[in-house]
Computed example of a mutant assay.
Amino acid sequence: MSVPEIDPSALPSDAYLLDVREQEEWVAGHAPEAVHIPMTQIQGRVDEVPSDRTVYVVCRVGGRSMQVAAWLTQLGRDAVNVGGGMQSWESARRPMVSETGQPPFVA
């Protein structure tokens, strides 16, 4: 199954961005508007993911998010992988925040 992919710089400003990285990765740096549901929890929390709009899925480099986007697509959801993950997000100089009080970075 082919999953659509988008470059971080092309992400719509009102996008629902689902970050599936682990907690320590999230804390170090994430998109301000992202929703955090780690890949390891997505099956049990799928009801928290909207079914009435496109979900853009991001991880560190794009592998985990591709798997989650493919799974969501199998469920009938409209899911798009964010190509290159948060590493590409950071390279594109998209906004990031951290939960540590330190400057955000991709862990």
Rank of each mutant, 00 (worst) to 15 (best):
D19R: 01
A34R: 01
A70D: 14
A31Q: 03
P8R: 01
E22P: 14
S91A: 15
V57M: 05
E33F: 01
N81V: 10
A28P: 06
E5N: 11
Q67V: 10
V57C: 07
P50R: 02
Y16Q: 10
A70C: 03
V35A: 10
S51E: 12
M39E: 12
P32H: 02
S2P: 15
T40H: 09
P4D: 10
V27R: 11
T100R: 04
S51V: 07
P103H: 06
E33L: 05
G62L: 03
A15M: 02
P38E: 01
T54W: 04
V35E: 09
P95S: 07
V58W: 07
P103S: 12
G76N: 01
M39I: 12
D47L: 09
S51Q: 14
Q74K: 10
W26T: 11
P12L: 11
S65Q: 06
H30K: 00
L11M: 07
E99T: 13
Q23T: 14
T40E: 11
T40V: 14
S98G: 12
Y16K: 06
I6K: 03
S91V: 14
L17Y: 04
P50C: 02
G84C: 02
V58F: 02
E48F: 03
D78H: 11
S13W: 04
G85K: 01
L72G: 06
P8G: 05
Q23A: 14
R21F: 06
A79T: 01
A79D: 00
S51L: 04
A34D: 03
M66A: 15
Q67I: 09
V27G: 00
E99G: 13
A10V: 06
R94K: 15
I6S: 09
A79Y: 04
A70N: 12
T54S: 10
Y56D: 07
A10E: 15
E99M: 13
A70V: 08
A31Y: 02
A92K: 13
G83K: 15
V80M: 05
T40P: 00
A10L: 13
P32E: 06
Q102V: 00
Y56N: 10
L11V: 15
H36S: 11
P103W: 06
W71S: 03
M1Y: 11
V49G: 10
Y16S: 06
E24G: 00
T54N: 04
Q87L: 15
M96L: 15
V20M: 08
C59A: 05
V80T: 13
R64H: 10
G62S: 08
P50H: 01
A69N: 06
G84H: 03
V27S: 08
V3G: 08
V49E: 05
T40A: 14
V61I: 14
R60E: 12
E22H: 10
P104E: 00
G76A: 03
P8I: 01
P32Q: 03
M1V: 14
L11K: 10
